Computed example of a mutant assay.
Amino acid sequence: MDLTTSTVFIPGATSGIGLALALRLRARGATVVVGGRRTALLDEIAAAHPGVDTVRIDTADPDSIDAARREVLDRRPDLDVVVAMAGIMQAEDWTSDDFLATAERTVTTNLLGPIRLAAAFLPHLRGRADAAFVTVSSGLAHVPLAATPTYNATKAAVHRLSEGIRLQLEPAGVRVLEIVPPAVRTGLMPGQEDNPVAMPLDAFADEVVDLLVSQPDAREILVEGVKFLRFAETSGTYDATVARLNATDRHAV
């Protein structure tokens, strides 16, 4: 994926990691389309960042995905990269009786969302010469945070999904790349923007884009700060890492 020539659609990029990456990709020369649910935020982004295109999309709504696909491809028939960025992270208490709604909402957004995006855009991407479908998992795919069991599970599923579809899509000409964030200072959960344990957003986004450029054949984009989670099991430190993560009582994406 050549960042200087790619046309990139990023659903879930009106704030946080998605917007930070969108702006950096644009600065590197890519054509960028930002997607999100809230039209007011999209209008603000378009006004503040000339050259960044915007499209309304709710990845929890199949009809919205279909409408966005038509709009994006009508405007940008040269689209060659889709980044499935949209996600939610909410605390759950499975010892209570009211966790189901949160769990279902998390599965719909974090797992069905990327699957539906793939179904919508892969027919187009398979026809491009240098196409990529980018997933966003988490360090919590590999080490669980007690407060967010369904989030952990959906990100583990995104990781394994990425591994599986790569085997099918790369021979068909579509690269599959997985971005694996650690805790990052965003508004993903209450208090996370001020979490001293989390990685500063700008530092994370800068490192990700540097890795995209320096590791063009990478399957996973792993900033240094996520590796203790990603490799906890294979390094023999899993139990200690689980204890360390949950002892901090901090959010780790």
Rank of each mutant, 00 (worst) to 15 (best):
T5M: 05
T7E: 00
V8W: 02
T14K: 07
S15W: 03
S15K: 13
G18S: 10
L21F: 06
A22W: 11
R24H: 09
G36Q: 03
A40F: 04
A46E: 10
P50Q: 08
V52A: 03
T54N: 07
V55C: 11
R56C: 14
R56Q: 11
R56S: 13
D61M: 13
D63L: 12
D63Y: 06
S64G: 08
S64T: 07
I65P: 02
I65M: 05
I65T: 04
A67P: 05
R69F: 11
L73S: 09
D78W: 03
V82G: 02
V82D: 02
M85Y: 01
A86N: 03
A86H: 04
D93P: 06
S96M: 08
L100R: 14
R105A: 12
R105E: 06
T109Q: 09
L111W: 02
I115F: 15
R116P: 02
L117T: 06
A118P: 03
A118F: 05
A129E: 11
D130W: 07
F133Q: 05
T135N: 07
G139Y: 00
G139S: 04
H142L: 04
Y151L: 12
N152E: 15
T154V: 06
A157K: 07
H159L: 13
R166N: 08
E170K: 14
R175L: 09
V176S: 02
I179P: 00
P182T: 07
V184T: 04
N195I: 07
A203I: 05
F204C: 03
D206E: 10
D206V: 15
D206Q: 14
A218Y: 00
V223R: 03
L229W: 11
A232K: 14
S235D: 12
A240Y: 04
A243G: 04
A247S: 15
R250V: 14
